[in-house]
Structures are given as C-alpha cells and as structure tokens.
Design a protein around this nucleic acid. Structure first.
Length: 878
DNA sequence: CGATCACGC
DNA sequence: GCGTGATCG
C-alpha cells in the first residue's frame, strides 16, 4: 500500500502557536526558547506517525516573503499582521524536529507550501499511490481533493481534524474541488488580501457557481445576470479572474525532490531523545521510551529444529530461505544454519542438522519445491562447496533490489529492507562485528537474526515484485538478471585453471628486474629512497633533481605516468621509474596476487559482484579477473598462466566489436554511424572521415587517433576536460572536437539532448531493457555536478545496454551448452567478452554456438559483430 | 582509512 | 566514465 502524507508546515505551526498563545503565557524551555508552537506541532506529528499506516511523508514550508503570486498582484497577503517573534524563533526548530524524526521537509524559493503540496499530490497520484492525505489548517488546499487525495483540516485545538473527500466537500461547501478556486475568485479572501468581486459573499458566489460552474463562464455570461448583481459582476470581472488565479495552487512547481526521497524512515532513538531533552519535552521522552521498550519485548517466536523426525515436516513448498554463511569469500565460507519462514511458521535449522539430515538436503536440491531467498549466488556456491545443491529458487531479493535501483543493493539485507521502510532486522555487522572482532555469536542471537532475515524476506518479496511490475522491469528481472545468477554461480564454482609454475617463473624474472631498477634509480638519484612512495619520489624528482613540476595533487607533486611521460627526455631516471612502476605492479598485483588466489584444486575462483555497479556491469573480486593486463606484452604474458582445463582443450575468447558504438548508432538512428557498421568499416577511420570531412585515404594517423579518443569519450561519457587529458590538448580544443562531432552527427546530438531531458524529468536514465540508473546530480546546485549528471545520463543507456546484451548472451550460451550436453564451461566475462574452457572435440560446435548466441542476443538496427580466437592459454586466445 | 597510482573495458 | 587492488603515511 502506497500512501503519502503531505503536511502544510507553516499552517500547522501557526495553528499550534495561536491555539496556545491566547492564554498569554507561552511555554519556554530552560534555555529561554519559546516552545509552545513546537510542542503542539510535535504532538501532531507524533500522533500522525503513530496512528497512521503510510509509506511516504513530506512537510512543506513557505520560503521567504515573496512568491510568484506577488508578480501578478503585489498586495498578495498584504495587510497581514507580522508574524510574532515568539513564533518566528520556533520556525527553524520545527525543521530540526523533523530532522530528528527523520521526516523530510522542503521549501522552494518563490513558491508557497501549497504549491509544493499540490505538485507532490499530483505526482503521487500519477505514480500510482493508493492514497494521499494532506494535512493543513488552510481551506484553500481543498481544491486538491480527489478520489485518491483527501484534505484534512485541523479544527480548533489541533486535536481533531475534519477529513474532506469529494463527497464531503460537496455536502459541506456545495462545490467540487475544482470550484474551490472559483469560489475564492468570487468572494475573495481577506486573510490573503485577495479582493474577489465587491459585494459578493459566499451565498451569492455559490448561487452563481451553481448555475455557471466557473468564474470564466460567469464573466462571459455577465449580461444575462440581472440587476445589481449583474453590474457587480461586470465591474469585477478582471478582479475575479485575477483572484481565482491567485487562489489556484500550482501543480507543476519545479521541485527538486523525488518521491523516493520521501520514503518514510524510522527515526533514530538517540537523536530524537537528545532533541527532546534540549527542549525539555520530558513527556515525549517518556512516551518514546515506552514505545521502544514495547518493541523490544515483542521478540519473534520461532523454533530451532533439531529433531530429525520433525524437520522433514516443516520444509514445504513456498518457503523463504536464508542460508547463513560466515566469511565474505563464500568459496571458503562456513555454513552456519538456515532460517526458514513459511505457512507452517518460523524455524531455524542449525548446520549440524543440515549436514546430517537427508530431508533438509533434499528440500534444498529439489527443483520442484519453490523457494525464495536472499543472495542466491552466495548461498548456492557456498552450499555447493559443502556438497549440497540448491535448486528450485524462483526469487532472489538481492538482485531484485538491484534491478529496482542499482545504487541501493549492498549485500546486507538490512540495507535493502530499510530502503523499503522495513527496519525489523539487524545489520549483519551488528551480529558478527567486524575486523578482528568478526565472530559467530551464540546460537540464540544468531538464530534470531537469521529468522528475522527470513521474515523480512517474506515481507519484502511482494513489495519488490509490485515495484518490478510498476517499473515494467519484470522481464529484465525474471528473464535476465535472475537467470544470470545461476550462470555466474556456475562460472565461479567452475573456476579457471592456473599454471602456478608459469607465474613463479614470470615472477622471478620480474623480481630480478626490480632489484636492478632499484639500484639504478637510487644511483641516479644519488640516494636511497622508497620509489614506491609518491611523496618521496616527488622530493627526489622535483627538489633533488630540480625537474619541472607539471602537475600537483592535493597532497604534493603529481608523479603519475602522464606526468612522467612528459619528463622522459629530461632525465634518465624517469624511464627507469616508469618501468619500475609497471614491473612492481605486475609483480605484486598479478603475480603475487594471483598466486595467493589459487585454490587447492589449482584453480582461481573469482566472485562476480552482480549488484554493485551503477550501470549494470558486473565486477570481479578476489581476484579481479577483469583487469588482467593485455595492452603491453610484458603484462600480457600473465595470461599465459591461465590455461585450458584438459590436456588438449582450449581457451576460447569471444568479444563484441564496438558494441557500445553500435548501440549508440541503433538508439540514435544516426545514419552515418549506422552505415559504418552495416558495411563493417573501421569505425575510428570512418569517424575521422566524417568529422574532418576527408576521404578515406586522406585520414592521417593523428586524425584517426583523435577520432578514436572522441569515440572513446562518447562511450564513457567523458568531459571536455577528460578528452583534453587524453589527447594532451587544451580544454578549448577538446570542446571544439566534441562540438564538431555533434555537428557531424546531428542524430546523436538530438538523441543525447532527448536522453538528458528525459532523465531530468524522471530522475533516472534507462537502458534498452529498462534498467534504471538514478541520477540525483541532475538537480545539484553545483554546475560541475550537474554537468556530470548530464554526461552520466548520456552514458548510462549506452554502457548499460551493452551490459544488458552480454548478459542475455551469457544466459543463452549457458542454456545452449547444457541443452547440447557439452562439457564446455563459461569461465569469465570481461564486459564485452566471454572466456570459455572448451574440450578439443567440442571446439567447432562451441565456436558456432557462441558466435550465434552473442550476435543474436539482441536485435539492433545494425549488426552485432563478434570476434573469436582460441589457444592453449588465455594469452593465445587473442 | 584516505590518497595515489595502475590495470581492465 | 565504471570498476579492483596494492601501497604509503
């Protein structure tokens, strides 16, 4: 149930103030601050939060004194008594209170709270909220009543409210919501200093509206109206129109917050308590304590199941299952136990029972028994290492949350739960501790935690599935992201064979070179220092040797490769340092790092994080197999250590050629670009031809290099600054290149503008498969951040769609391999490339299959092209 | 634990 | 632009 509460902050504060102020003795805190309005306001907010079920909440405030309405009518709200200082000083405190309550408040320059509320209620209705409740003391807001939106007007004393529905409004005031503004246009409003038609009061106004419906209609037919009234209407027609306009609440204010920002979160007990103490609101503190104590007493009831005769009975279809592991690397994690929640109740099954009870193992491995889980891949791989299969899972909360919003899904269930306003579960870190204190707690604590997670899972599954439907992401989730979990689990568990001796040999060579380089560098420097320390190196280069400082970092001299490259001619030490950097990098990250990651089976088992990147790409850790060197021969040699698993098998590498630019051609429909791909031309040469307006044979290598950098920039969404760094040119020149590129391909310009506009409107950009990336930077006050947001908006659909496509290919390749009963294994994905382990006799079949599935993963307006190669090692599969 | 650097796409 | 990892202070 999605229900939004919108509160008119100013109105309630006024009411709260005057409700108690007349007595003449205002409440004061021990610090001398008046608190009567805050007290009433806090009371109101508390009873609101305690007595209502809702999912979103916002308190809107007026900003400043003037609004856009003053432009049309400078007397707007004129003649009002000034706000008493005793109330003014409480205004900021109200915002502090809301902060402590974890309730969002918002105000907007030039607009009134009404307009924010009007806009939000419209947005909420459009986005499928079931109900919107507006709370105010101002009857103007009644114009917002609809079948979904109710307006609650506070009555004297604040304690009770009057709820207006369309029906009640008609009964009570005799008008429809739309006519509320007409009514005010006719009769005016003294409190806002809106004139209305002279001599027309409520009775007359209603009579007129009853007959003519709107102010406009009344004015148009003024001649029909007889007598004095007719004259009054004619005389006051402009005033009436203006008055109506002033009374009309704007439903399209340029607000900078989104519905997601308003999700109701629990307050932090300590913060709130501190705040109440500051205000001397002791009664509230007591109530707070009672409420939290209550919560702690409601311990969840569950059963720890050990009886082997009983355990079989509780494991039924439709179970929510948490397989609890201990250790971040699940290839070597212990399994602690399982939390099960289903129609029979809540249960905890300790690991000893899992290990010894066939019923439990059958339950997990039976694909006919429907199960739902959290972090399916972790559970599946961990169980597999312990000898158990985990099948029949049809929902994984972690990946579902990631699809809904890639920026929230961290691997802690509590983090995700909180994002959906469910807080009744602990963070794993609270249970296990961290660092040296990462320990398994006693079973009582552990089991309660695991069962709570399973309970949260049950609560959250329908909510997330609803959202997937609402966002039209069901296909993306059920046909792609979720099936991919199993594929990745298999890849990780399979692992890739590594020739340790090869790594040893390369490592030894590197080590001798390092020793030699160290000696040379120290000699050239005239002293011994730590070359690996940028700080020390900086001193040697720029102080001792007096080289020119090219760039500085926050902390000192910059010594990165770009800088050193420019100093290469100036001193022989530079070349040595550069070499030292690459060699030590190779040695520590790739030789030592990889050797440490080899398992007892002689393989490396990476972990693909499926829920981390904001674009939809995968990432790889422990070790990262997506950044094994390739560009330079020295590093590329590392790949010789990644070998086929069988004697005469091969490693097959298949990569998409220019997939991002092909996607750009497809999405933008830019003709020149499409043509290039349809004829399979060299894309950078083609870009150079188009941008520089030259013939094929006139493209120089510099032109091609520049065109390539611009294409690169398009794909990665870099700025003029980034491009200038890449090409070593000025930002101005870089901007010229970009402008020229967009001029050459107007289709791309149009497409990019469109994407940015849409992203600004929606708050997110999306891929071809409806994967979203939210971009809050688009409304950032800082120009640079906004600019970054725009580039992100342009880039996310390109990179994300490429990620979508290779994921489709992976699922399809995987399914084909198993359907054709092959022993070939998918091993690694590197963003636009797949690495497979292929037995010799399957090679021809697999080559065909992989090419087919990759090239036909998704139908674009241009062909998808895949290049393949194979060999005994990854090195040979260029 | 943040900053810097280097590797990949 | 998006990532991971090693090292330093």
């Amino acid at each position: 149930m999605k229900k939004m509460i919108l509160i008119d902050g100013n109105s309630l504060l006024f009411r709260a103030y005057y409700a108690t102020a007349y007595s003449g003795n205002l409440m004061k805190s021990s610090k001398g601050l008046h608190t009567n309005a805050i007290f009433g306001f806090a009371n109101m907010m508390n009873s609101l939060v305690d007595n209502n079920e809702f999912s979103h909440i916002l308190v809107a405030f007026d900003a400043g004194k003037t609004t856009f309405r003053h432009k049309d009518y400078k007397e707007y709200k004129g003649g009002r008594k000034p706000t008493p200082n005793e109330l003014l000083e409480q205004m900021p405190v109200a915002r502090q209170l809301l902060d402590a309550l974890n309730i969002k408040c918002y105000e907007l320059e030039n607009y009134e709270a009404d307009d924010i509320i009007g806009t939000m209620s419209k947005m909420a209705e459009e986005q499928g909220f079931d109900e919107v409740e507006i709370i105010t003391g101002d009857k103007d807001l009644l114009q917002l009543v609809s079948d979904k939106t109710h307006v609650n007007i506070t009555k004297k004393g604040l304690s009770d409210i009057e709820t207006y529905t369309i029906k009640y409004l008609k009964e009570k005031m005799g008008v429809t919501p739309d006519q509320v503004t007409d009514l005010k246009g006719l009769m005016g409003d003294s409190s806002d200093n809106i004139p209305g038609i002279k001599g027309v009061g409520e009775k007359t106004a209603l009579k007129l509206l009853n007959k003519y419906k709107t102010v406009e209609n009344i004015v148009e037919n003024a001649e029909e109206i007889k007598g004095k009234l007719g004259e009054k209407v004619v005389a006051g027609k402009d005033i009436a129109r203006l008055s109506k306009q002033l009374a009309t609440i704007k439903k399209d204010t340029p607000i900078e917050i989104s519905i997601e920002d308003l999700e109701h979160k629990k307050f932090d007990y300590e913060t709130l308590k501190e705040f109440y103490e500051y205000l001397d609101f002791h009664s509230f503190i007591k109530r707070l304590a009672v409420n939290t104590d209550d919560k702690e007493e409601v311990e969840i009831k569950y059963e720890i199941v050990r009886d082997p005769n009983k355990v079989g009975n509780i494991l039924v279809n439709g179970s929510f299952v948490i397989v609890e592991t201990f250790g971040t690397n699940y290839h070597k994690a212990d399994i602690l136990g399982m939390g099960i929640v289903n129609k029979l109740g809540k249960f905890y099954i300790p690991n000893e029972v899992l290990e010894t009870n066939q019923n439990v193992q059958d339950f997990l491995s039976n694909s006919e028994i429907d199960k739902y889980t959290f972090d399916f891949k972790r559970a599946k791989v961990a169980l597999k290492w312990h000898g158990y299969d985990f099948e029949g899972v049809s929902f994984d909360l972690l990946t579902a949350a990631y699809v809904l919003n890639p920026s929230i899904a961290k691997e802690d269930l509590r983090v995700i739960a909180s994002n959906f306003s469910y807080d009744d579960v602990s963070y794993d870190e609270e249970i296990y501790g961290k660092g040296a204190k990462y320990l398994v707690p006693e079973e009582e604590i552990l089991s309660a935690h695991v069962v709570k997670k399973a309970t949260a899972l049950r609560q959250l599954k329908p909510i997330l599935i609803d959202k997937l439907r609402e966002y039209d992401q069901e296909d993306l989730y059920f046909d792609l992201e979720f099936p991919l979990v199993t594929v990745l689990a298999e890849m990780e568990y399979t692992g890739i064979d590594v020739d340790r001796t090869r790594l040893d040999d390369i490592g030894e060579e590197l080590l001798t070179r390092i020793t030699k380089l160290e000696k040379d560098i120290h000699e050239l420097a005239g002293k011994s220092f730590n070359i690996g320390s940028p700080k020390q190196l900086g001193v040697v280069l720029f102080e001792d040797l007096g080289l020119k400082v090219i760039k500085k970092t926050k902390t000192g001299y910059s010594t990165n490769a770009d800088v050193l490259e420019k100093l290469k001619e100036k001193h022989p030490i530079i070349e040595k340092v550069l070499e030292y950097r690459t060699i030590t990098k190779l040695h520590s990250t790739y030789i030592e790092g990889l050797k440490d990651a080899i398992f007892e089976d002689g393989k490396i088992h990476t972990i693909f994080n499926q829920t981390l990147t904001s674009t939809g790409r995968l990432s790889s850790t422990e070790p990262n197999l997506q950044n094994i060197p390739i560009r330079y021969e020295e590093g590329r040699n590392i790949r010789k250590a990644f070998v086929a698993s069988s004697e005469d098998g091969v490693i097959l590498a298949a990569d998409y050629s220019q997939i991002e630019l092909r996607i750009l051609a497809h999405m933008s429909g830019a003709e020149n670009l499409m043509e290039a791909f349809i004829h399979d031309m060299d894309i950078h040469t083609k870009t150079a031809m188009d941008v520089f307006g030259v013939k094929h044979e006139e493209v120089t290598s510099l032109m091609r290099r520049q065109a390539k950098a611009v294409n690169f920039g398009i794909v990665y969404g870099i700025s003029a600054f980034g491009l200038s760094e890449n090409l070593n040119i000025s930002q101005k020149e870089a901007q010229k290149f970009i402008d020229k590129y967009l001029e050459t391909y107007p289709g791309i310009k149009e497409y990019m503008d469109d994407i940015v506009a849409k992203a600004k409107l929606n708050g997110y950009a999306e891929t071809m498969l409806k994967r979203r990336r939210y971009i809050p930077e688009l409304t950032n006050k800082n120009y640079m951040r906004r600019q970054f947001g725009e580039r992100t908006a342009m880039n996310a659909p390109i990179q994300g769609s490429a990620a979508d496509i290779i994921k489709i290919a992976m699922v399809n390749v995987f399914n084909r391999i198993s359907k054709e009963e092959l022993n070939t294994k998918l091993l690694i994905q590197v963003h636009d490339e797949l690495i497979l382990d292929v037995p010799k006799e399957e090679l021809e079949q697999v080559k065909t299959l992989v090419k087919e599935e990759m090239e036909n993963a998704f139908k674009l307006n241009v062909p998808l092209k895949v290049d393949m190669d194979y060999g005994k090692s990854w090195y040979e599969a260029k």
